[in-house]
Design a binder for these strands. Structure first.
Length: 442
RNA sequence: GCCCUCCUGGCGCAAUGGUUAGCGCAACGGACUUUUAAUCCGGCGGUUCUGGGUUCGAGUCCCAGGGGGGGCACCA
């Protein structure tokens, strides 16, 4: 019934059932719970044990065994109060459901709500698995600056900060892309970075102003190879974390079984509309279609932007199972390489899952003269009023002039991926400390 | 930025416009030597987010503000 082996365990007291001269408690640590069995004539501070509050941290020592009801328990011989919980963790049965408390005081949520704890365990495990997957394939995990003198690598509004000693403004990075490709120029052939990026935009169920990106770059491959890598990586994660290639998301099944559908952006948009459109469709007709979809057209838009907008309005949200959307217009892809056979398109794809963009990838543009033209176009767009346009990055051009080998690159939004794998409808369920309006203490 | 909605003891919930705002858990005191959200008994705990208004009477209806959530827009 009770072994002679002595064990020491520490954790937090979650339940206490005092019953006269014996008491039962549930002790929980990182990995699980175990029942404590305490007898008044076997423990010196029996009264103190009964006066513990739920939430107190204690260390116990005793023998392991089973109670009469068969519950595995520690038969406590001594215990130590390690730290008091001066506040309690809410209803022991219902936990804490108030979202304000859950997001602002995640430490409470994690203890009070096991589901929240499981979600974050899964998220952290997912990131660990990604590292293992990539390291097994010869990728180096690297670090690049977060303070950028020029905001680049994506189309987004940056946060601005100031360095006093240099008396210069810096931007919190919106993407690590341009630095990672500099590392490829410098001779690292496979690199990845998992890190926070910052975009000064609205907060919504799918947007947190700081979020985590995986970006990777591999020399000597193109976007087709990257598609294969994305399939392999996501299937690996689905199986490791959810045990299946078919996962439940918001009450519907997502089928990750390979191969995933691959189709061009123009094909998919045409499919949605029920008639053919392409970059070659007369401009006025594209404008008419966009207007009929209530798209707010900006004067600086060309056919590429129009087709992209039409695709996003008609198609993206409908793509449920993983789909590779290929061959974006060059006009909206300033860092991607021209398509090898289709003028006006680049070798770029997005991976759409559950109607949302999960990954964005391309064969990297490595021609410095063409890159300069693309930047120039971005600068013009910026002058025309596009506050998400990229700036000229002379050093990046200079790096390309030293030679960037043919390279495939990929970015994956980790938070969105975690939402899928954790069946979360909101990004705040998978971001431990989501952005909130600063709390006022009075 | 726009629209909708919510806010009641520490936590979870209740209260057709009508006494002194109830209940469970926690906390506090007590009973109990095999419990499983233990059970039983006792007392304590709330300016119903804030400020106005309508009303004989407001937790409830109206207005404004604060905070949260959902949706739209933008994006990842």
């Amino acid at each position: 019934m009770v072994t002679e082996d002595r064990y020491k365990v520490a954790g937090r007291l979650m339940l206490l059932r005092s019953q006269g001269k014996i008491s039962f408690g549930d002790l929980r640590d990182q990995f699980g719970s175990i029942q404590l069995f305490v007898r008044s004539n076997e423990v010196e501070d029996f009264a103190l044990f009964n006066s513990l509050n739920l939430g107190d941290w204690i260390g116990v020592e005793g023998r392991i065994g089973k109670t009469k009801k068969g519950e595995l328990s520690i038969f406590v011989e001594s215990f130590t109060l390690l730290a008091r919980a001066e506040r309690n963790f809410g209803d022991k049965w219902h936990g804490v459901s108030d979202t304000d408390t859950r997001y602002r005081q995640r430490y409470v949520d994690l203890w009070a709500n096991p589901a929240s704890r499981e979600t974050f365990a899964k998220r952290f495990k997912m990131i660990s698995l990604m590292r293992r997957f990539l390291e097994d394939r010869g990728f180096f995990e690297v670090e690049t600056p977060i303070l950028h003198p020029i905001s680049g690598g994506a189309l987004a509004k940056p946060f601005v900060t100031h360095h006093n000693a240099l008396d210069a403004n810096f931007y919190l990075r919106i993407a690590p892309e341009l630095y990672l490709k500099r590392l490829i120029v410098g001779g690292f052939e496979r690199v990845f970075e998992i890190g926070r990026v910052f975009r000064n935009e609205g907060i919504s169920p799918r947007h947190n102003p700081e979020f985590t990106m995986l970006e990777l770059y591999q020399a000597y491959v193109d976007y087709s190879d990257i598609m294969n890598l994305v399939e392999e990586l996501l299937c690996y994660l689905a199986v490791e974390l959810n045990g299946s290639l078919e996962i439940e998301y918001q009450g519907k099944t997502l089928d990750f079984r390979r191969p995933w559908r691959r189709a061009t952006l123009e094909e998919l948009a045409s499919e949605s509309l029920g008639y053919e459109i392409s970059l070659e469709t007369p401009f006025e007709k594209l404008v008419d279609i966009a207007k009929s979809l209530s798209i707010k057209i900006e004067p600086e838009w060309g056919p590429g932007k129009l087709v992209l907008e039409i695709y996003e309005a008609t198609t993206e949200h409908r793509l449920w199972n993983p789909t590779f959307v290929m061959d974006f217009p060059v006009e909206v892809s300033p860092l991607a390489r021209d398509h090898r056979s289709k003028a006006g398109r680049v070798e770029r794809f997005e991976t759409i899952v559950a109607g949302r963009e999960l990954a964005n990838a391309f064969s990297e543009l490595n021609d410095p003269r063409e890159q300069r033209r693309r930047f120039m176009h971005q600068v013009e767009m910026g002058r025309a009023g596009d506050d998400e346009a990229m700036s000229m990055d002379e050093d990046y051009i200079r790096a390309l002039e030293y030679g960037l080998p043919p390279t495939g690159g990929l970015g994956i939004g980790i938070d969105r991926l975690a939402m899928l794998l954790c069946d979360a409808s909101q990004i705040r369920e998978v971001v431990a400390f989501p952005a909130m309006r600063p709390e006022v203490f009075d």
